[in-house]
């Protein structure tokens, strides 16, 4: 028994040593949202080529990312759902966005080509509330007078796992439908009034492509890369817009980035003639008083590099980068982080 204890202590010591060495090698560790994982990993491999520093990002989900940064097991956390200022201050966290994304409704309807169907916010809310149950409903017909809509049962598909995608989507529905806001509300997961749940963007896309007469929502990048049958939306100014890089950038253009709210600005239902209504940013969390300032500094250096050099990589993956002057504001906010000193 004593022998095994000693053995265990030895092993634990070895493990601690391994952790200590990896930390002193200043490799950057992060965890969180799955949505920006493709762009973070692309940035990471380019960053390793440019500087030799490696970034280890684990896409365990926004909830996991928040927990990991709170317990200080990673240098940075990533979340699709911005934390409110109260939470940021309580945990001593700094929050800043990296790229813009958003949700696009996808449908499976015989005889309807991608981009033909037009929906508006209240109609979308009523569909997901279960008040519109048939594709031939007058509300949908009114928005699509030229389309031959079939008399077919409407099946909604939503995310069964908690996700930033859901957060953006239901946040939009809460803004455009009072009934949705009262009955359901918004969070990364909600109590869905009807429909079927599927795990991940690929699960929702799979179920929608399988099920005739269904409607769901997925990340914008997922729509373009898989050529899904998307619907156009009527935005806040009553204009019909398509989901593309320009309309996502337009949604971010009018937003307020003064940092008073911890940059937790939600980009849903934004003004602007060309603004896509269901847009949102994805966020990074770091500690302002990190227990390991060197590691946090390395993490911020990575994002500084990404802001300066990462736009083409992001665009190639269908993420929308922020304008340069907005990114400058984000980098200025890093001065609140102990040991950053403008990256010097």
């Amino acid at each position: 028994m004593r022998l095994s204890l000693r053995l265990f202590a030895g092993l634990a010591g070895l493990a601690a040593l391994a952790v200590a060495t990896s930390a002193s090698a200043a490799s950057i560790s992060g965890a969180g949202a799955t949505f920006p994982f493709p762009v973070y990993s692309k940035w990471a491999s380019a960053y390793k080529g440019a500087t030799g520093n490696s970034v280890n990002y684990q896409s365990i989900g926004s909830g996991g990312g928040i927990k990991q940064i709170q317990s200080k097991t990673v240098s940075f956390g990533a979340t699709d759902m911005p934390l409110p200022l109260v939470d940021l201050n309580r945990d001593g966290l700094l929050q800043f966005p990296t790229v813009i994304g958003g949700d696009v409704p996808i449908v499976n309807l015989r005889g309807i080509a991608p981009g033909q169907l037009v929906l508006d916010g209240p109609t979308l809310a009523n569909i997901f509330l279960g008040k519109i149950t048939n594709w031939s409903d007058p509300a949908i017909k009114k928005l699509n007078p030229t389309l031959a809509l079939p008399n077919q049962a409407l099946i909604t598909v939503h995310r069964s796992d908690g996700s930033g995608t859901t957060f953006i989507f239901v946040n939009y529905l809460s803004k455009v439908s009072k009934e949705w806001a009262d009955k359901v509300g918004f969070a990364t997961a909600v109590e869905w009034p009807n429909g079927i749940g599927a795990k991940g963007n690929e699960g929702v896309a799979g179920n929608v492509t399988q099920t005739n007469g269904s409607i769901g929502y997925v990340e914008y990048a997922f729509v373009t890369q898989n050529k899904l049958n998307y619907a156009k939306m009527v935005n806040k100014e009553g204009k019909v817009v398509s989901p593309n890089a320009a309309s996502f950038a337009a949604a971010a253009a009018g937003a307020n980035w003064d940092g008073a709210n911890g940059f937790g600005t939600l980009l849903t239902d934004q003004p602007g003639a060309n603004a896509w209504p269901i847009a949102g940013a994805t966020f990074i969390l770091v500690h302002k008083q990190p227990s390991n300032p060197a590691a946090t500094k390395e993490a911020l250096k990575f994002f500084q590099w990404a802001y300066q050099n990462g736009d083409p990589a992001a665009a190639s993956l269908d993420y929308v980068p922020f304008p340069a002057e907005v990114k400058q504001k984000f980098m200025v906010s890093w001065n609140q982080v102990q040991g950053w000193n403008g990256g010097k």
Partner: peptide, 13 residues
């Protein structure tokens, strides 16, 4: 559990 575990944030979720 499989669906919701990774993103269950909040005190009671």
């Amino acid at each position: 559990i499989a669906n919701e575990f990774t993103e269950a944030i909040g005190e009671l979720y």
